[in-house]
């Protein structure tokens, strides 16, 4: 392989010459770095790669990727991405959105791109706040969030992005954290390898308007105690020594947090992660309570036929059925008569 290495692109080769304009310390820098590294690892062809985004801080992303890119309008990136895939299914399309862009103004489009299972990667940067418009609460802000538009605390209940994606019929749902430079490329590679709409929620810290909102489970010290890394075929354990785990309470069809070695609990009682199990996925993304960890990793992955492939098949079938379809034949279709 060594003789090929001079040709191989590095993460830097995927960066444009444009000055990155996010706030210093923004989580987006880490995500950008991870994505560029992932593309280098995947040896992605920049000519065949397209980044599509809506509006918001996260949506500036395409300008910093030395691939094809389309910075579109607020909330509508899924529709543009769908059109791109329908025009050329061979393109590798990444969509970048945020909690406001993807779940508020663009909620409808996100729902439908997931439902249709268009073969793209969707990265939703969730910082639980509107950054570019200067700090208003977003659909993922927790109730009580104080912001310029909610000085008395927000009253709305917050949306859970992964639960939304699962309910919309997504066939790949994963979570990762902006600063986790080891975990994120792994997850992005899995998303890329999945054929269909791959939904990745990235917890992203907004240093200016919502700093530390995820610190309780992303800080280095807190992470082992509060983060559970789901891996297919492995037990769902967490804690500094993997001493805690998830057990199914069969009386209630609910998940409970248990400690191995306490109350007769053994490792065998702990659930094994099955990423093809939609019900388990839903329980994992909605885990709640003071002891509950935040589950990251590939939570659901269950491949199905994609929309773009289905469309291409229908077109191909029509062309086979009518190989000589030409404009003249079409113009003269139906009953005609001749005037001499």
């Amino acid at each position: 392989m060594n003789e090929l290495s001079p040709q191989k692109l590095t993460a830097k080769d995927y960066a444009t010459d444009q000055e990155v304009r996010w706030c210093p310390g923004c989580g987006d820098y880490a995500i950008l770095k991870s994505v560029q590294k992932t593309l280098a690892d995947l040896e992605a062809d920049p000519a065949n790669t397209v980044f599509v985004s809506g509006i918001g801080c996260s949506s500036r992303f395409p300008y910093y990727m030395a691939t094809y890119g389309f910075h579109t309008i607020h909330g509508r990136a899924p529709a543009f991405a769908t059109g791109i895939k329908l025009a050329n299914p061979d393109l590798d399309v990444w969509m970048v959105t945020g909690d406001g862009d993807g779940l508020s103004i663009g909620g409808n489009h996100l729902l439908h791109v997931l439902r249709r299972n268009v073969d793209i990667q969707i990265l939703l940067f969730n910082n639980e706040i509107y950054g570019l418009t200067k700090g208003q609460y977003s659909p993922t802000s927790r109730p009580g969030t104080r912001s310029p538009s909610s000085p008395g605390g927000s009253i709305e209940r917050n949306l859970n992005p992964c639960n939304f994606a699962l309910a919309a019929g997504a066939r790949f749902v994963a979570r990762t954290v902006d600063t986790d430079q080891k975990h994120m490329p792994e997850i992005l590679k899995r998303a890329h390898g999945h054929r269909g709409a791959s939904f990745v929620e990235i917890y992203q810290n907004c240093i200016v308007f919502n700093d530390g909102v995820f610190a309780d489970f992303t800080d280095k010290k807190a992470a082992p105690e509060r983060q559970l890394r789901a891996e297919h075929g492995h037990r769902l354990v967490f804690g500094p020594n993997n001493e805690k785990g998830l057990r199914l309470n069969r009386d209630k069809v609910a998940i409970e947090i248990v400690t191995i070695g306490e109350n007769g609990i053994t490792e065998d009682d702990i659930l094994v992660h099955d990423e093809t199990d939609a019900l388990l996925a839903q329980m994992l993304v909605t885990l709640d309570g003071p002891d509950a960890p935040v589950v990251v990793g590939v939570i659901y992955c269950n491949q199905a036929d994609t929309y773009d492939a289905g469309v291409a098949r229908q077109v191909a079938k029509a062309k086979i059925a009518k190989p000589n379809a030409d404009m003249k034949e079409l113009l003269f279709a139906g009953s005609t008569w001749t005037v001499d």
Binding site: V50, V52, F70, T72, I73, R76, P78, A79, F80, A81, T82, G83, I84, L86, A87, N88, L91, N108, H109, L111, H112, V311, Q314, V315, K317, A318, K319, A321, K322, A325, M327, L330
Partner: peptide, 27 residues
């Protein structure tokens, strides 16, 4: 379809035009 026409019934009017613009971007 045999004439190379792809039709996309979008989820709304906005998605309809956006998909068409995306397709134009892609050729």
């Amino acid at each position: 379809k045999e004439h190379g026409v792809v039709t996309f019934q979008a989820e709304d009017e906005i998605a309809a035009i956006c998909s068409a613009i995306g397709a134009s971007f892609a050729g």
